[in-house]
Simulated scan of single mutants.
Amino acid sequence: MTTRHVPLALGLVLAVQGMASEARAADDGWRYQLTPYAWMAGVSGDVRPLAGAPTVSTSRSFGDVLDDLEGAFFLAGSARRDRWVLFGDLTWASLSHESTLAPGVAVQGKLRQRSLTAAAGYQVVSEPDHRLDLLAGARAWRIEAEVGVPALALGARDTERWVDPILAARLRSSWRPAWTTLLHADVGGFGVGADSTWQLVATGNYAVNETLYLSAGYRHLAVDRDEAGTRLDVAMSGPLLGATWRF
């Protein structure tokens, strides 16, 4: 190599090193994603929303739930850096129902639920096509129940709040360039908040581009809690649709 070519070669080496450094910095930075989704869940189980009230067994399809639905909001998100991962999920729903106790006497009921899941973990498997995260965290619940008989000027209201510790695993698999799957499982409660709770989520995901993904799948969430005269032993399950923005 001639002397005049040394500066050019040195410049190319420095440029490549600079590009590699920038790529490593990008890889080492935080990556985020947000997923608003719709969960079309039915509900079944036993509920005693107020202390002293009778226990009610229910089995309602999503169509039945939709008739009573006043509003709902679901949002999941995650953040990653190297193999570390943070995960969160927010759910909110409000329902109301009216039935007849006697001719001219209506009973009105309202139920509002909120849950917030937060967990942190580590990617224990990092293969080109399969990545497994193990996480630990908590799910906080707030359930507000209200029953009223306007004609008799009677009513009762109660709010239950508790926090469940949870352990979770998330497996992401790539099958084709644009197709991936996600399997999520968690278990918790352990008598700290609820007696027990567990969840399974499975989705198939399609990459529209590098930042937008569309998802469809199924979710099942169960919780069993008996505390201070109230009882909640229900399972919520149904299909879900979502869109994920990655940045």
Rank of each mutant, 00 (worst) to 15 (best):
G11H: 07
L12K: 08
A15P: 02
A20S: 14
E22S: 15
A25D: 15
D28E: 09
W30H: 08
Q33Y: 13
W39S: 01
M40T: 11
M40E: 09
A41R: 10
A41L: 02
V43W: 05
S44G: 14
D46T: 09
P49W: 09
A53P: 06
T55M: 14
T55R: 15
V56A: 14
S57Y: 11
S57T: 15
R60Q: 13
F62P: 00
D64A: 14
D64F: 07
D67P: 00
G71A: 03
F73K: 09
S78C: 14
R80F: 01
R80G: 14
R81F: 01
R83A: 13
V85T: 03
V85R: 08
L86D: 03
L90V: 14
L90D: 11
T91N: 02
W92T: 13
S94Y: 06
S94K: 08
L95T: 11
E98C: 00
S99R: 15
S99H: 08
L101M: 15
A102G: 05
V105N: 02
A106T: 11
V107E: 09
Q108P: 03
Q108V: 08
L111W: 07
L116M: 08
T117I: 01
A119L: 08
A120F: 04
A120D: 00
V125C: 03
E127S: 13
D129G: 01
H130K: 10
D133A: 00
D133E: 08
L135Q: 13
A136G: 11
A140Q: 02
A140V: 00
R142G: 03
E144S: 10
A145E: 00
A145N: 09
E146R: 12
P150C: 04
A151F: 03
A153L: 11
A153S: 10
A153E: 08
L154P: 00
G155S: 14
T159K: 02
T159Y: 12
W162F: 07
V163D: 15
P165H: 13
L167P: 06
A168W: 01
R170I: 03
L171I: 12
L171G: 04
S174P: 04
W175T: 04
R176W: 13
R176N: 09
R176K: 15
W179P: 07
H184P: 00
H184T: 14
A185N: 09
G188A: 02
G189L: 07
F190L: 12
G191E: 06
Q199M: 10
Q199P: 06
Q199F: 01
L200S: 03
T203E: 06
G204C: 11
N209R: 15
E210R: 14
G217Q: 02
L221I: 04
L221E: 00
L221G: 00
D226V: 02
D226N: 13
E227H: 08
E227P: 04
E227I: 10
T230V: 06
V234A: 05
A235L: 13
A235F: 09
S237H: 13
P239R: 02
G242E: 09
G242N: 03
G242S: 10
W245E: 10
W245H: 12
W245C: 12
R246I: 06
